[in-house]
Amino acid sequence: MPIWMLLAVFFALLILTGLTVYQSQFDLGNAEIWLSLTIATVKAALVILFFMHLLWDKPLNAIVILGSLIFVALFLGFTLMDAEGYRENLIYKSTVKASQPGAKGDEIDN
């Protein structure tokens, strides 16, 4: 791997890090998490393809690692499928003492 390519990938990663820090200053609501995850995935792809040489590697290794990502997606997807179901049971604990000025931290939630 030529040196210019190593350096180019490194600076691209730095720029993307700067971008993700910069975008976090704005309140984008729901889109924010997806934007930052997209940037992180682009960075991760750069690391895997160039630093880990997957672009030039044997197809078997690529299948192995992409296969694991499919299983991660399945794992997260299935777990989050019924995540909304827990919302109704959310109980806010009493925090009366917390609003008193000068209350000690230990007393707030026994």
């Binding site: 890090t17 993700t20 820090v21 976090s24 200053q25 704005f26 309140d27 924010e32 930052s36 995850l37 940037i39 992180a40 960075k43 991760a44 690391v47």
Partner: peptide, 11 residues
């Protein structure tokens, strides 16, 4: 790369 935005950059 994933931990940094997910933990530090929540607004």
């Amino acid at each position: 790369i994933y931990l940094f935005p997910l933990l530090y950059l929540i607004t």
